[in-house]
Amino acid sequence: MAGGGGYGGASGKVDYVFKVVLIGDSAVGKSQLLARFARDEFSLDSKATIGVEFQTRTLLIEEKSVKAQIWDTAGQERYRAVTSAYYRGAVGAMLVYDITKRETFDHIPRWLEELRAHADKNIVIILIGNKSDLEDQRAIPTEDAKEFAEKEGLFFLETSALNATNVENSFNTLMTEIFNTVNKKSLSSAGNQGGLNNNHGSLAGKKIVIPGPGQEVTAKTSTCCSSS
């Protein structure tokens, strides 16, 4: 579904801007996922993220030009400076852990809690197990994560920012899902809501029903978003 959209500058008009936040423990590879997605880069000696950073990439989804504005934040406590503004207006979130580090997965419920406390309750969330290239050091079986994601109603994929496995796929999944929910909403409310051309291009305050799982995605249903 989602496809196209080269790297580099935004050219031409943009139909939608979707803000997505990356969260998770330090050193799980958030910034590397972003660098891989936004610029197709991977750096072996990357530095800790300070404060917040963002990058964008424009994708084509169903012939619409969709700009992904992806925010990345410091996982390390001493570099953090996150305000509630970090989550403000975010319509998607990537919750990242490192498949070789048990504790980064154990902390996922905490991150989820933070997300649910600060972000819009209709935010689309994907759980990402990064560093799948380190299969020999795996500490978290795929099944465990899958089960957790289903229980919490999250999408789930394992990725490797290093060899680019599933990175494109995971962002596309997330963006397409956001796109669909926004579109569905705008049709049913007969208004062209969502998208930047209509002032506050966010989902804030709009109720969204998340449809079933996408093809490559293993999440079950929409428990997280339809409850409450």
Binding site: G51, E53, T56, K67, Q69, A74, R78, Y79, A81, H200
Partner: peptide
């Protein structure tokens, strides 16, 4: 220093977040 940098990043982020949409190329 790290705290100054973190603060600056938040200030930039605030501008985008309160703008509520496309950040625009200049901010990028």
């Amino acid at each position: 220093e790290i705290p100054d940098l973190a603060q600056e990043s938040v200030a930039l982020h605030e501008m985008v977040a309160s703008g509520g949409g496309d950040a625009g190329e200049s901010i990028e």
